[in-house]
Design a protein around this nucleic acid. Structure first.
Lengths: 203, 201
DNA sequence: GCTTTAAAAAGTAACCT
DNA sequence: AGGTTACTTTAAAAAGC
């Protein structure tokens, strides 16, 4: 009887405390990242699964909460980058990424690949680009994706390059630096993706 | 002409068109001389070794041929990395033990050696549709924002393969060279069967 | 979990001319 | 712009924090 009581107080109760702490952290991140309730609910679901599988033992609760939130964003196609989650949670991007891959592996989660098309709107609004340029970038991305030049490339870099090319075509005065800064990639990456687009689309 | 008509059209897409080219890039072996070793004494006799016990308990003993780096621990256990084949890894450990003996380190036993991991690179005959592969290959992950290759965990032989859009790959986790060839062959066949390879030119 | 070793793949990044 | 170097990912062992 004492044994049964022990197993409840020392195992189940701390699990509840762990989840309460995780959920309050999720609430904090919810405001910082401005994500909806549905995303938070999914993140909480993923975190609970991780807890049940014992993936939290020996690991940082904060890092796993951040990773669960990133997984929820990916699953719902909510455009939040690893950098966004890392900055909001004060956890190294490398650690969030490592925990995210652990969740995918251990919980057998299947995530859709990040779509460059979804990156366009975010970059465009941050850089203050026109609707026409955004449309043109989407056309460019469409052709690029079908031409298989996107495999293995960072979706943000692809979207940034497409937007830069669209700016040039529409005569919108934005430098590579402006677009690179808004996308969180370097000018060198935009240049490299641009080379591929130029060759493939014979621009 | 009849035989050609029968074979070629049906072989396409169902049987590997080319044979993968495999290169063993790194072999990791562990060993033990079954006795303790005085690492400070080795440092005195071999000035080129690296030993920073506050940073890492192992002493780094580099060989120019076979080009390897062997970590030596005071327990007499070692880890040899950098060899290009199982044989070379074994030879490297024996060379290290021989050098220690000639340098005056009292070693009584021959080293017991075990291959722990083999890293290989390979090239399949064509490009890969990674995004599709990520969806149809079990135990695979493709995160282009984090790494350009698709990470696939094969069950038999138990290995991990990093597959790139170019059709080149890295296979790691095997303990025998034969497992590397089997893993690459398995993956090549799987990619062919699921039409995930793109042969051009 | 971290520390150290080696090596490949392809992409991105940082720093210098 | 370009070139270099360096870091991301994978596996595995060693002894100890």
């Amino acid at each position: 009887r004492l044994r049964t009581w022990d197993s409840r107080s020392q195992v189940h109760e701390p699990v509840d405390r762990n989840f309460r702490q995780a959920f309050s952290e999720l609430d904090r991140l919810k405001d910082k990242l401005a994500v909806g309730d549905a995303v938070i609910e999914k993140a909480a679901y993923v975190y609970r699964k991780a807890l049940e599988k014992g993936l939290v033992r020996g690991r940082s609760i904060s890092a796993l909460v951040a990773a669960a939130l990133y997984a929820a964003c990916r699953d719902t196609e909510t455009p939040r980058t690893l950098k966004d989650i890392a900055n909001a949670s004060n956890i190294k991007k490398k650690d969030v990424a490592r925990c995210y891959r652990l969740l995918i592996r251990e919980l057998d989660l299947k995530m859709p690949v990040v779509d460059p098309v979804k990156c366009v709107a975010r970059i465009a609004s941050k850089a203050g680009l026109s609707e026409k340029t955004k449309r043109k970038a989407l056309e460019i991305l469409k052709k690029a994706e079908e031409g298989k030049i996107s495999a293995g490339k960072d979706p943000m870099g692809l979207a940034a390059a497409a937007l830069y090319v669209a700016c040039v075509m529409n005569g919108e005065n934005k430098t590579q630096k402006d677009v690179a800064e808004a996308a969180g990639v370097t000018e060198v990456t935009i240049r490299n993706r641009y080379k591929g687009l130029k060759t493939h689309l014979k621009l | 002409m009849a035989s050609r008509y029968i074979y070629r059209p049906f072989i396409k897409g169902s049987v590997p068109q080319t044979k993968p080219i495999v290169s063993i890039e790194n072999v990791v072996a562990s060993a033990t001389v079954n006795q303790t070793v005085n690492l400070n004494l080795i440092t005195q006799i071999f000035p080129d070794v690296e030993y920073h016990p506050d940073q890492f308990p192992g002493l780094v003993f580099r060989l120019r041929s076979p080009k390897t780096a062997t970590l030596i621990f005071s327990s007499g256990k070692m880890v040899c990395t950098g060899a290009k084949s199982e044989k070379m890894a074994i030879q490297a450990v024996k060379n290290v033990v021989q050098k220690l003996k000639k340098g005056g380190i009292p070693l009584e036993n021959e080293p017991q050696i075990e291959i722990q991991n083999i890293v290989a690179s390979a090239s399949l005959g064509g490009k890969i549709h990674l995004e599709l592969a990520a969806r149809v290959l079990p135990r695979s992950m493709y995160e282009p924002e984090q790494f350009p290759g698709l990470i696939h965990r094969m069950l038999d032989p138990k290995t991990v393969i990093l597959l790139f859009a170019s059709g080149k790959l890295v296979c790691t986790g095997a303990k025998k060279e034969s497992e590397v060839y089997r893993a690459v062959g398995n993956l090549h066949t799987l990619l062919e069967e699921k039409n995930l390879m793109i042969y051009e030119g």
